[in-house]
């Protein structure tokens, strides 16, 4: 049974790198996303008046 179906490709396997050098980037991405969601929640809470709520 063939396991590498397409012949003739460059064989350049890369070992899976550890989290190491990317840890801060991932943390920054997650924190930034949470901050953006929180800011949008604040915008909604402070600035939005749902239709039908004004009497």
């Amino acid at each position: 049974m063939q396991t590498t179906p397409s012949p003739g490709r460059a064989d350049t396997p890369e070992p899976p790198p550890p989290l190491g050098s990317w840890r801060r980037t991932y943390a920054a991405t997650i924190v930034l996303a949470l901050v953006v969601i929180a800011l949008l929640w604040l915008l909604t809470a402070l600035g939005n008046v749902p239709l039908g709520s004004a009497r």
Binding site: I37, L40, W41, L43, T44, G47, N48, V49, P50, L51, A54
Partner: peptide
């Protein structure tokens, strides 16, 4: 922003 908010369009979350 006041006009959009009063129309219920700042409903981001």
């Amino acid at each position: 922003f006041a006009a959009l908010g009063a129309a219920g369009k700042l409903n981001a979350v």
